[in-house]
Design a protein around this nucleic acid. Structure first.
Lengths: 336, 336
DNA sequence: CTGAAAGCGCTTACAG
DNA sequence: CTGAAAGCGCTTACAG
């Protein structure tokens, strides 16, 4: 079918070695270069990556590992990663994993078999699985995206969870709110616990008593979050503001507003961690903390390639990506 | 680093050929099988795919080609495709392309170089590019997802665009609407034109005059769609209902409701093609046509593997995936 | 700078 | 069923 390096060699009367050198950007005589280029053009030659990989022991391939329960966000992360990798002459494969399983040796086998040089792990939580031990045993670098590696210390890229939650909470408190609710995902997850840490830190600064910091956590599903929100708002003394720690928490809360006859911001002020185009279209538009997915993807890619190149000078690194706050109209100023 | 088939051969005192046979599921003596299995376990042997690919001329790899401007939807399609492929012992790579470019030869080179056996093309529109000619010249099967191949006839997987638009429109007309607006994406795209076709067909059935079928198309951006919606509603005689032909059209329309002082459904009835968790949380909840992304991903995968296996018995095939309608409360019944 | 030769880790006819 | 040998399409020392 396709032509090979042999065909080019025959066509140009040069040796395989010379063609190979040309392909790998090494110095050859200009006249030979011209000959080769013409021949490649004429025969439509495209190098076979499998052969290059096998021989050179470099696959130039990385993998993005996605949980099968895919969030909307991760899709766009994939594009950002692939774009970066393509620019750096790397291929990207994707693979999915079942986050509920401890045993990820199947995934590991797949990664090794494909000889990936590194992996970006988009994780709900994989800390307790055996994946990291396996990857380490084979010296395959990995970057944890979104969550942060702690136990086996590792590289991570994540948002400025704590600080942005701190600022957001401060924003609420500065507007006179003195009893604030929080709905979060899995309390054991890094992102959730960091966001809560930021929340509590701001509360402390404003001397908000513990009982007025109403934190409710469950998991990352809309179902659980909805129940928590309902519970939160059915209290004797419901909060005047609520901080929703993630996209699904926000959606599930909004879904119940009507049902619970809660008006925003008259009855309740509301801020969401994670934005969606649509939140700006709400009545009222919802103020949000926005994660910079493009930068998360790019930084994870950059860090991974650095590790692949053997540069562990700053290992383990937790790269914190700044978020930004979009003020819209879902918070009422009680201080006026 | 890792052990090779040679190590297993040495360890078991068997030949390379026998190990290879075992790996490829061919008959070998039970006693040898046991020896090999023990050895593989002991040495932690994992086959090198590159070598297998190179030698066997089968890469068991497909590619999902994504436009760089990635829609939320395509992310989840990736998971569905990868899951299916994994079950069928295929690897999935992703690659992005610039949909505004006619020349996709770089993408083509990448696909050939990686020796992908087939590609699923998630396309805004690529019909006018040179990609298909190139893929054909190399006998690489491809499935067009979302849009439909016509000019060079090819396999496609798409939603039931025309029929579901027909049903949706009928739903509006049966509720007494006699002047209906439509905001769509690129009029030249298959999906948009099919949805409009369905719309017009229902209108004809109800003898709606041409001037009361107000179709406005632009592109797939929220910006353009927003302008069109504004224009639509600023007419002397605005429609009583609008059918928004895609996620971004719906979002941009909703964003302007407040601004234009339009209440749903009192002033305007509204239906969206494409759902989002959040649409159900709106006040009022928005009725939607939902595309079955899981099935689209799975069917595209199935069809692609069929072609890869050389089965072209039903070529070219356009696989139509059913949508479903979720009735919520964004449409007013004028007939009562 | 160029070329002959070896070899990456496998699979595949081909004998036995 | 098993094994020796050739070869997939490249790259890499090593001489020249």
């Amino acid at each position: 079918m396709g032509s090979t390096i042999k065909d080019i060699a025959r066509d140009t009367n040069l040796s395989l070695a010379t063609i190979s050198k040309y392909l790998n950007g090494k110095k050859i005589l200009p006249e030979n270069q011209k000959l080769i280029e013409e021949s490649i053009e004429r025969l439509g030659y495209i190098p076979n990556k499998q052969a290059q990989m096998l021989r050179s022991h470099r696959t130039n391939t990385i993998c993005i590992l996605l949980p099968v329960i895919s969030d909307y966000f991760w899709g766009s992360i994939c594009s950002y990663v692939e774009e970066y990798m393509q620019r750096h002459n790397y291929s990207t494969i994707i693979s999915t994993y079942d986050p509920s399983s401890q045993d990820q040796s199947e995934v590991y086998r797949h990664l090794v078999s494909a000889q990936v040089e590194g992996v970006i792990i988009v994780s709900l939580d994989l800390q307790r699985s055996n994946l990291f031990t396996l990857l380490k045993s084979n010296n395959i670098p990995y970057i944890y995206l979104d969550q942060v590696m702690t136990e086996p210390a590792g590289d991570s890229v994540t948002s400025d969870n704590c600080y942005s939650a701190y600022c957001t909470t401060k924003y609420l408190l500065e507007r006179g709110h003195r009893r604030v609710g929080v709905i979060g995902g899995d309390i054991d997850s890094y992102t959730t616990s960091e966001r809560i840490r930021g929340f509590r830190s701001a509360c402390r600064e404003f001397s908000i008593p513990e009982q007025d910091q109403i934190v409710m956590c469950g998991d990352f599903t809309a179902e659980t979050s909805g129940k928590l929100f309902k519970k939160l708002m059915s209290q004797q003394n419901p909060p005047t503001a609520v901080f929703l720690l993630g996209y699904f928490m926000t959606v599930s809360a909004i879904q119940q507003l009507d049902n619970l006859s809660i008006r925003i911001p008259e009855d309740l002020s509301l801020i969401s961690f994670d934005d969606d185009e649509i939140f700006s279209a709400f009545d009222p538009p919802i103020s949000v903390v926005v994660q910079d997915l493009a930068q998360m993807g790019t930084e994870a890619s950059r860090l991974l390639l650095k590790r692949i190149q053997g540069d562990y000078s700053d290992f383990p690194r937790t790269k914190i990506i700044k978020t930004h706050f979009i003020e819209r109209s879902s918070v009422r100023d009680l201080s006026k």
